[in-house]
Design a protein around this nucleic acid. Structure first.
Lengths: 96, 96
DNA sequence: TCATCAATTAGATGCTTGTCGAATTATCAA
DNA sequence: TTGATAATTCGACAAGCATCTAATTGATGA
């Protein structure tokens, strides 16, 4: 899927900036982004020394910021990077 | 001055991400960036509803992150955006 | 139906941080 | 030298947040 143009509100920009401010979330986003397709929650838990509760919390922050899409199948959750949103954010910053 | 290539360490990336996470600092950076040349501290105080102490604190954070350069002349301080650093950050993000 | 497992939510805790007023430092003019 | 002004630093406080364990929800297989 080609990334499409996204317009970010000021509120979204702030949510994204905050989401990226935590090192763990930055790392999570990188891991998700490193995969062409989606990444399963359990795969991430294997790599991050953090409780399931904390991981869930961080994923929610990334989702609220609009940086990832969460899809659930049965018991399992998986995540994909929304590249168009990340791109819109970097372009917004570059305009400064 | 042409912006030159800058390589950011992981620590610097985190400092920048944190610096951008506060709405007030984001606003400050925009104001500084909106000026071709440097911006005087007093000009900023006129626009931001914040105490001198708080302003000084934020400027220090931006400076530590490497996003601005602070120059002092006599009693006065002025700030310039380090565009090469900001650019390096956005490029780093875009690589995700 | 029941036990199990994945993920989320709830509640608590300790650390970080944005903010201010007051004190301090540094500069300049009279 | 003294007084005024610009900026920073100090000390304190409240809000926010990353983290955990425990409890809950939801799905699957026996």
């Amino acid at each position: 899927m080609a990334t499409k143009r996204v317009e970010l509100t000021e509120e979204q920009i702030q949510l994204i900036a905050k989401a990226l401010a935590d090192p763990r979330r930055m790392e999570l986003l990188r891991q998700i982004g490193s995969c062409k397709e989606s990444v399963e929650c359990s795969d991430i838990r294997d790599c991050q020394p953090v409780s399931a509760a904390t991981l869930s919390h961080h994923m929610k922050e990334l989702e609220i910021a609009g940086l990832i899409r969460v899809t659930r199948e049965g018991k399992f959750a998986s995540y994909t990077l929304k590249r168009d949103v990340l791109k819109a954010y970097t372009q917004q910053l570059a305009k400064i």
